[in-house]
Every structure is written in structure tokens, then in C-alpha cells.
Design a protein around this nucleic acid. Structure first.
Length: 476
RNA sequence: CGGGGCGUAGCGCAGCUUGGUAGCGCGCAGCGUUCGGGACGCUGAGGUCCCGGGUUCAAAUCCCGGCGCCCCGACCA
């Protein structure tokens, strides 16, 4: 299949990659997706890395129900206001109308905090550090595979603490030590952490933190969020504990999540005109060996050598695939594995065997090298590390090259209107100024610095005196 | 909800103006030739033309009424 070029038709390119690399497809159910084995393998890789960090930071996994009684959702005013338009409600079951409708969870704060009220009495019960991997449903207007689907898969962490300080430390720790770490170290993405403005905050939160990633069309993607919920949910669901002094106090909350959206971010930050480029740390196959032969004699010879190489690679712990399908020609396979983003490809044919060599192609740079068969496998771990590093460096270089400090509002406007990337500058902190920029450019403030510092000088958007530095971009 | 478009083979579409045998490309099946960058030839399978009604000797095509989907404007991990 031919891929549209990224630069001329990014949405079509994205769709073609998702389809061509066999990651997912639209399902009959409105806005939902069928995640296919290759796409799910990528998600499982993300899950494994994230789950390791979640556990390493002291959390345990558990599981809450899919259904939430409607009245529970209604307890926290801002929360219900924010989610009401996008919840799916079950009104009928068991052949009759339900006395009380059930909401299909759009997120689980409500049912979890209602449960926590029964789990917490004393300061000795805190903190609660729990996480669940599950699916949630939000009735979205414009579904797009991985980026915004009606049903999506994620993890949601929900913690309860005895003090505000401890909760805020937890909020930041999960953003940085889990989300940012896995995105950078495993997915090789460039993500920028920061605070959301009040208007972009999670409904019911006192503060939302985000990691934002710039895609190759210059639009930003919110790749993960971590919220400090203050005592809002504790008050709504009556989660009180007796502190060391014997006084009753409401608990402090955090919640944080990353979703299958990360797969979309991976595609859109690393992808090129040949398709996906997967970082070796995540790739379901790190190396694919494509044997080339015509005659029966050649087939025996080549497959024997290819099998030995594949075995050597597997013995080194590398995820390896020998593509010995006989119903496709080599050229087809080269293109297919490039589309699927496999980091390294080995081409092995009779001519190579005669010369005791193999052709090795890296997906990140598309460099083709001829290497001696001698200790070919032994050279691969270092090569894969180099690909991992290169993808990450390319991502950082791209974001840097698409970040502008505009010297005037006019410059900022034309930059954002053209989706040039991140525009960074001093901001007055006012919501009406933020709204005006959105009206002018369709761009929003993606984040404020993680360490909030005073900014000097005039607001780059409205000219009033600035209080903080902001980063604007158009977003997915 | 306001404006525009579409519904025909698994997918992408033509045919509709001017009613008359259901078509094309990809994919799929069989056989043969191919095989170092997305192969080719021959043969073949596959259809409630979105649904319901009407006009007509005859409807994918014309008329009426439904339903569904997509794009553009406000939400969202």
C-alpha cells in the first residue's frame, strides 16, 4: 500500500499507518475500536513498563466495577458537570427498566472514593495507594483510532493521603517518575511536563499536571495527566480520618492516568513516510530476518543460516522474527516490516552466504550496511541501543526546532495558526486572555512550568503584566 | 443542533442527468510462471444496489417518507 506523505496530509497518513501496520480498526459500535494483535502487543509493552513503575513507587493493583450508580456520580458538583455530557447511561437490564440508572464509568473517582469512605477511619489507614488497569467510556464527538475513542483502555491511580503536602508530592512523583520516565526511556518520546491552567483542569481537581508531546504536524498531544484533587472528593464522599491529635479530618486525594492514546502519540511523534518507527525497548519484534531464495537448494541453505542467526539473536534475549513466509516476495516483506516499524531488518540471500555476510537495515535512519556473518548477532544489542537513543534524540530535536519564543502577538498568531509547534512566552494568567488566544488561533495553553516561577515583562498575548511563562499550541 | 456530502461485492468507487442483462480497481480462490525493494498471466467465487412505499410493461436510476454514516462549527485521556 502507498502511504500519503506526512507533510501534505497528516490525518490520512495517520489513518493509513494504523491500518497498514495492522494496529486497529473501527468497530461497529459507535466510536469504538478493535485493537488488533500487533497494536495490542505495543500497548502491552507500554503497560508492562508503566506497571513496573507504578509498583516500584509503592502502589498495588486492584479492580473496581464498570458500572457506577448514577447518584454517586452526582455528588461532586464540578465533576458531574464536567462528565455529564459524555457519560453513557444504562437504563434497561434484565428485561426491564432499572429503578436506578447505571453510568458506564468515564473514570472511577466517584465509586472509588465512595468505597474509600468505608476503608478509612484512622491516620493509620493512610495512605491508600491503588491503581487499576481497565476500560472506560466517554461519548466523544469525534472519535479517532487510539487518540480519541468512545471506549479506551488505561490505568487510573487513585490515592488518599493524610496531608496536602504528601498528596501533592504523590501527584508530581507519578507524573515525573512514572509517566515522563516511561515515555522518555521506553517510548523514546519527547514529552514536556507542566501544570494545566484552570480552564483546562480535570473536573473536580485543584491542580492538574500534564505531559505534552509535540506531534510531527506541529500539534500537541496530552499524553498523560496527574491531578491533585485536594479534599474535594473526600468531602463529597465523606472520607474522614482521625489524625494523631484525635481530630477528624478529610483525606487528600490524587488521581492519574495514561491511556491507549500513548500508542497514537508514538505513531505521530516517531512515524515517517514509510510508516511506524518503534523504539527497540517497546517493539514486539526488535529484529526481523528476511530470507531470500529462488531454488530449492537455495531455500535449504538460506533458511538453515537464517534459522541459526535467529536462534543466536533469541539466545541474546532479543525479540526476533524469522519471516519465512513463502507467499510473499522479499520486496513486499521489506515494505511491510518498515510499515510496522521493526527497528532492525536482516536480509539474507545466497549471494550473502557466498560472501559470508548479511545486509542489515536500521529503521530509524534507513541506513543499509553489509556486515560479516561472523559475530553478527553479538553486534545487535549495541545497535538497538543506538536506535533507541537516536529516536529519542530526533524527537527532542524536532520539538526544539518547533518551539518559538515569539517577540510579538502577531508573530505568535501566525505561528500558532499554521500549527508551527509550541509558542512559549510570558502570560498574564487571566482566563479571558487565554480564551482570546484560542479564538484567534485555535491554540490553547498546553502547560505552565512544573516549577512555577514568576515571569517578568508584558504578557505576549495581551500586553498586561505577566505572572508566569506559558506554552501554547494547537492540540489533539 | 446549524450548513454541506454520501449510502452499489470484504475495502475503495463508477453507473443515476436521459429507466431496459450489475460494473471497475484492490483484495479473495485455483493453476502456471516468478522471487535481492510492494510480481505477472489465465480462470473463477462473491450483490436484499441502506429500508419502506409510489409511478411504470420495466427502477440502482424518477417521486415521497424513513434510517444510517461522513465533513465543517462548541467537549475530550
Amino acid at each position: 500500500m502507498a502511504l500519503p506523505t506526512q507533510s501534505t496530509n497528516f490525518p490520512a497518513w495517520y489513518q493509513a499507518v494504523v491500518k497498514g501496520a495492522d494496529l486497529a480498526e473501527n468497530s461497529l459500535a459507535r466510536g469504538c475500536m478493535v485493537v488488533k494483535p500487533y497494536g495490542w502487543a505495543i500497548w502491552e509493552g507500554i503497560q508492562a513498563a508503566m506497571d513496573e513503575r507504578i509498583k516500584a513507587t509503592g502502589h498495588q493493583n486492584l479492580q473496581f466495577p464498570l458500572f457506577i450508580p448514577y447518584r454517586l456520580l452526582e455528588r461532586e458538583a464540578e465533576h458531574v458537570e464536567g462528565f455529564k455530557p459524555e457519560v453513557a447511561v444504562v437504563t434497561h437490564a434484565g428485561g426491564e427498566e432499572l429503578e436506578e440508572p447505571l453510568v458506564v464509568r468515564p473514570t472511577s473517582e466517584t465509586i472509588i472514593w465512595d468505597t474509600y469512605s468505608r476503608w478509612v477511619q484512622s491516620w493509620r489507614d493512610l495512605p491508600l495507594l491503588y491503581n487499576q488497569w481497565c476500560n472506560v467510556v466517554r461519548w466523544e464527538m469525534h472519535p479517532r483510532l487510539f487518540l480519541r475513542t468512545t471506549e479506551f483502555y488505561w490505568q487510573e491511580g487513585h490515592t488518599a493521603h493524610a496531608t496536602a503536602d504528601e498528596a501533592m508530592t504523590e501527584q508530581r512523583r507519578m507524573l515525573v517518575e512514572a509517566y515522563q520516565d516511561v515515555c522518555e526511556r521506553v517510548l523514546a518520546l519527547d514529552v514536556r511536563p507542566g501544570h494545566k491552567t484552570e480552564s483546562e483542569r480535570f473536573p473536580g481537581a485543584d491542580d492538574s499536571m500534564t505531559i505534552e508531546a509535540l506531534m510531527r504536524d506541529g500539534k500537541a498531544l496530552q499524553a498523560g495527566t496527574s491531578h491533585y484533587l485536594g479534599q474535594n472528593f473526600a468531602k463529597a464522599y465523606n472520607v474522614r480520618f482521625q489524625n494523631r491529635e484525635g481530630e477528624l479530618e478529610y483525606a487528600y486525594a490524587t488521581s492519574w492516568g495514561v491511556s491507549t492514546r500513548l500508542v497514537g502519540g508514538l505513531i505521530m511523534q516517531h512515524g515517517d513516510d514509510r510508516g511506524l518507527r518503534l523504539p527497540p525497548a517497546l517493539a514486539p519484534y526488535q529484529v526481523v530476518v528476511v530470507p531470500i531464495f529462488r531454488t530449492d537448494d537455495e531455500r535449504v541453505r538460506v533458511l538453515e543460516a537464517a534459522g541459526r542467526l535467529t536462534g543466536d539473536l533469541a539466545a541474546l534475549g532479543l525479540r526476533t522474527r524469522l519471516d519465512d513466509r513463502e507467499d510473499h516476495r522479499p520486496g513486499f516483506k521489506f515494505n511491510e516490516w518498515e510499515l510496522k516499524g521493526v527497528p532492525l531488518r536482516v536480509e539474507l540471500g545466497p549471494r550473502d552466504l557466498d560472501a559470508e555476510q548479511a545486509v542489515v537495515v536500521r529503521r530509524d535512519t534507513l541506513e543499509k550496511a553489509t556486515k560479516p556473518l561472523g559475530d553478527l548477532a553479538g553486534s545487535f544489542p549495541a545497535l538497538l541501543e543506538d536506535i533507541q537513543r537516536t529516536l529519542r534524540e530526533q524527537a527532542v530535536a524536532f520539538t526544539d526546532a518547533h518551539t518559538l519564543r515569539p517577540s510579538s502577538y502577531e508573530e505568535m498568531r501566525s505561528f500558532l495558526e499554521a500549527s508551527g509547534g509550541f509558542a512559549v512566552g510570558p502570560w498574564c494568567g487571566r482566563a479571558d486572555c487565554e480564551a482570546q488566544v484560542k479564538e484567534d488561533t485555535k491554540a490553547t495553553i498546553r502547560f505552565l512550568p512544573l516549577d512555577l516561577e514568576d515571569a517578568a515583562g508584558p504578557c505576549v498575548a495581551c500586553g498586561d503584566s505577566a505572572i508566569v511563562e506559558a506554552t501554547w499550541a494547537r492540540a489533539y
